[in-house]
Design a protein around this nucleic acid. Sequence first.
RNA 1: GGCCGAGUGGCGGAAUUGGCAGACGCACGGGAUUUAAAAUCCCGUGAGGGUAUCCCUCGUGCGGGUUCGAGUCCCGCCUCGGCUACCA
Length: 940
Amino acid sequence: MPRYNPAVIEPHWQAYWEEHRTFSAPDIPTGDKLYVLDMFPYPSGDGLHVGHPEGYTATDIVCRFHRMKGYSVLHPMGFDAFGLPAEEHAIRTNTPPQESTDRNIATFRRQLKMLGFSYDWQRELATTDVKYFRWTQWIFLQLFDTWFDEDQQRGRPISELPIPPEISENGEQVVRQYIDDHRLAYQANAMVNWCPALGTVLANEEVIDGKSERGSHPVERLPLRQWMLRITAYADRLENDLQELDWSESIKTLQSNWIGRSQGTEVDFYIGSQETNQKKHKIFPRKPSDDVLRVYTTRPDTLFGATYMVIAPEHPFVDRLTKAEQQTAVKKYCESASRKSDLERTELAKSKSGVFTGSYAVNPVNDQLVPIWIADYVLVSYGTGAIMAVPAHDTRDFEFAQQFNLPVVPVVDPGDVADVDRAAVLAGRECFVGHGIAINSSNYDRLATSEFQNQITADLTADGIGKQAVNYKLRDWLFSRQRFWGEPFPILHQLDNDGNPTGLIQAVPESELPVNLPKLEDYKPAGTPDPPLAKAPDDWLYVTLNGHRYRRETNTMPQWAGSCWYYLRFIDPQNDQAFVDPAKEKSWMPVDLYVGGAEHAVLHLLYARFWHKVLYDRGYVSTPEPFQKLVNQGMILGELEFTGYQDPAKRWISTEFVETEVQGQKVQKDSRQPLQAVTLDIDQVEKKGDSFVIKDNPDIRVESRSYKMSKSRGNVVSPDEIVKEYGADSLRLYEMFMGPLEETKPWSMAGVNGVRGFLDRAWRMIIDDRSEEIQLNPAVQDVDLNEEQARVLHRTIKAVTQDLATMHLNTAIARMMEFVNFFTKQSKRPRSAMNQFVLLLSPYAPHIAEELWQALGHDPSLAYVPWPDYDESMLMESSVEIPVQINGKLKSRTTVSVDCSKEHLEQAARSDKKIVPLLEGKQIVKTVVVPGRMVNFVVR
RNA sequence: GGCCGAGUGGCGGAAUUGGCAGACGCACGGGAUUUAAAAUCCCGUGAGGGUAUCCCUCGUGCGGGUUCGAGUCCCGCCUCGGCUACCA
């Protein structure tokens, strides 16, 4: 077998590594450690996508490199296996979801092994393993057992929660309620997407435009008892601790924006009877009293411009504030609002909607009566669910005021600012949201916005009608799903003698874990909002503990749960005494490099960091953050496509006359006629100016771009076909050669063929492809390197090593290609250089490298052979070509010795035969000489 | 609407961070080998032009600026992509 044949050598070396446990990691690292983690995949029925191996290959290269550098490397893989598709499959086929999950995992495992990743497969786990989710449940119990101490800014055991006397004097029931209200895991009523036609509760992503994704049935919003996690308590720490992390600034801003901390002021507007008017308190009450409507604003300086108020349709005061004559209208409005999805409330609503309650409140700063409206542009879940509306200085309020003819009172003078029509603002005809100088604000007039804010917040605080407040866009985490295929909650609901819930809850004792999923008769939806587990057999559902009868919690945890801590379990995957051994945890954590798709940039990473911080506060982990360095790989798109557009009469329409409608339909700009997309072949088009046009009709521009890979577009590439045709090493190499890891890049089959060509050439550089047996190419000889060969070798080692350290894997491959191009032309190829090259190549293309290493006469494996060193002195060339410029324009090049002095270089440039005539008769104003770099004469 | 990112040959992308734009690969063209093809090897390949084995001009989305010198820095735009969605 003289030719490079990946189909033979790849399975051989995979079997070798597996048999010899080449990549098993020690329990405790010896010497330097490196923990490199891939975001583990959801094992879908479609198998691996070429997007997966991109990040996996990059991390594998880093791992293989560090093993050769002498590090202890932990590089595990597992499966995030709970999830909706498996449950949908179970419903359709009436088979337990475990079965399809196991099948899919087997496919993923096979595909991952086929790509030669150096995972320690002994540590493989799936979130659906009972042995794993036993500890997911255990961590939930820690969250349940923790309260957040605001003063100390950390989570503490619930047993240390101080109980105020006014609580404890009301008896055990009230105390237990108080305690439950302070846990990090607590129950609340939250809205769910209930679909009566399907008889099930849907996840947000299953709802599209207010209809179910499957079957397009109407979806209602329904309040349901849910488990929540108090992530907002950790919001400030989650934001501040980002600073210490080696993550890209854009991901940090993304998380920071998601947390969305804003500082503002809470203000009470009096809504009681007119006679008493507003009361002033000594101190601002923690919970608003019944006769006030509390609002949150970031612009307390605009209080004098508040001309009306708005409460959310779900606000608890809706009924109280609705006057008899408005009853019908309000009821109708709130009902229609409850049917709207969040999306409909925002994007699709081109104009604002709302209804007047009939009630008024008193503006505390000027005692004016302002009408209270209900509108769905105010969200009940943010701030206090009520706002003071300042149409002159808030675009949303302005739109609403225009719609319903409400007064606009300007209170901020913008002054002379570009793009602002000051006169229009002062006349209330335009809205201005910037800072300026106060007007129409009594004795606050003439104050600058920020001074005003400080001043009025102090004054409101002194009067007990306001105080500074902080709000977050981040909401508490809705942590339960009405689904079967998830971790059961280790929670019991106490029942009274009649079998009704008492409202008291009880954690399942740690010794009773795990709470496994029951076997069900069928997986069909119950037809009620009850979770499927409510249909479980009684011997699962009902529990007797310490003489009480309990019913198990029937909600399950969301898919995020298992992925919140898997990186810890990989450190000690078999431990049945603890979720992770503390000594092992301390020696391996934190994760040194975490690579995955940007789609998890916010939620997964935020949730995992939150759990980690709770575990840290409770002393179970040693680092405040789990992932020290994070890299987000870019998306891999399908092959480049050319698309032309035709109208119904099959006439071509150039792209500048094509518009996209909201639903994605392409239409002609003026006539709004729908257009047909036609895929064109590369040789039907040509480049003209900035765009591509139809060759036979150069006035017609066409679209040229790559699209996301999707089944419906039919541009999905499977790793299986690439490995079959080109081999795993070619796939790995191509994915790295495509471009920078973080960038979005289009797939190209021709590109895969190109890197395969490189591996073929590398093979022939070392192996005699004419012989029957594997034997060395006769050009490979035990000879010393000549000066040039040594320079090329050491330059390659240096470049490849440095590029690897900075994860510029595409240019490292280019350097190795240059090496092969050079040495292929050498009639004598020193064996030592070939050895070094194979080591450089091995992290990228490990199978061919092992094969070549053996052919060069070494024992397997090269996985722990020291990484080549380079000698800086070998890189030096004796002479160097220096560009000579006149007025910054390149005019000539001159060759000088590498250690040439500044003076000498200038002299050489000045006397260059092309430069001499150009300088003749000119006055040299300035000469710039950068030794080893360039010379520039500035002349007049 | 907001935030983030990106615009360099026919295509993917390089460019030591202000110093020879287009490394490397693909595609394409020419040649060698071959009965022929595949494979392989060699040469060429940003655009335009000229007195054509040599030389000139232009050129990194557009318009300005800083600098001896800008793909790289600053200001203002345009286009595309991703995320997000009335957060008061």
